[in-house]
């Protein structure tokens, strides 16, 4: 029996669709908002982190008038921030996601290592 490869195309598309669905992340909505560091960082003022619902984020050094664009998503209840250089910052929400403990080591940790942790408080 001869079959055209086109007859298998739907199977391929369904397969890709399923895998694409599988690859999708969790809802970002619970974490959308503006966060600000609890303390000034390195005598240079506060950092403001704005998590938008479209998956984009702004990292602002408020006093320095310096802003960097990031992407973000949620995985396993934690906030993953992606920087264009390929590095990932993972934030662990606590206190009902009012506090975000951001690991700035660039390495994987179950929580946020104290010496490499910046705490953000949700302000909006």
């Amino acid at each position: 029996m001869s079959r055209s490869v086109w007859q298998r195309l739907p199977l391929g598309l369904v397969l890709l669709g399923c895998l694409g669905f599988w690859a999708c992340g969790e809802s970002r909505l619970p974490f959308v908002g503006t966060y600000k560091t609890a303390e000034p960082i390195a005598n240079k003022g506060h950092i403001e982190l704005v998590l938008k619902d479209n998956g984009e984020a702004d990292w602002n050094w408020v006093d320095e008038n310096r802003s960097v664009k990031l992407k973000w998503r949620v995985q396993d209840g934690r906030v993953w921030l992606y920087f264009k250089e390929g590095v990932i910052l993972i934030g662990t929400p606590t206190n009902g996601s009012k506090i975000l403990a951001l690991n700035i080591s660039g390495e994987w940790h179950e929580g946020c290592p104290v010496e490499k942790c910046i705490y953000f408080t949700r302000v909006k």
């Binding site: 960082i41 320095e64 310096r66 960097v68 920087f83 250089e85 660039g106």
Partner: peptide, 30 residues
């Protein structure tokens, strides 16, 4: 990156991870 720096670095060296530079430039300046 921090993990490589921690493993071996020149005595007294600062670690400015270039992959974080844009994010942390003011801290590095400090």
């Amino acid at each position: 990156k921090d993990s490589f720096f921690q493993q071996k670095h020149i005595k007294g060296a600062e670690n400015f991870q270039v992959v974080f530079f844009d994010l942390m430039a003011p801290m590095f300046q400090f």
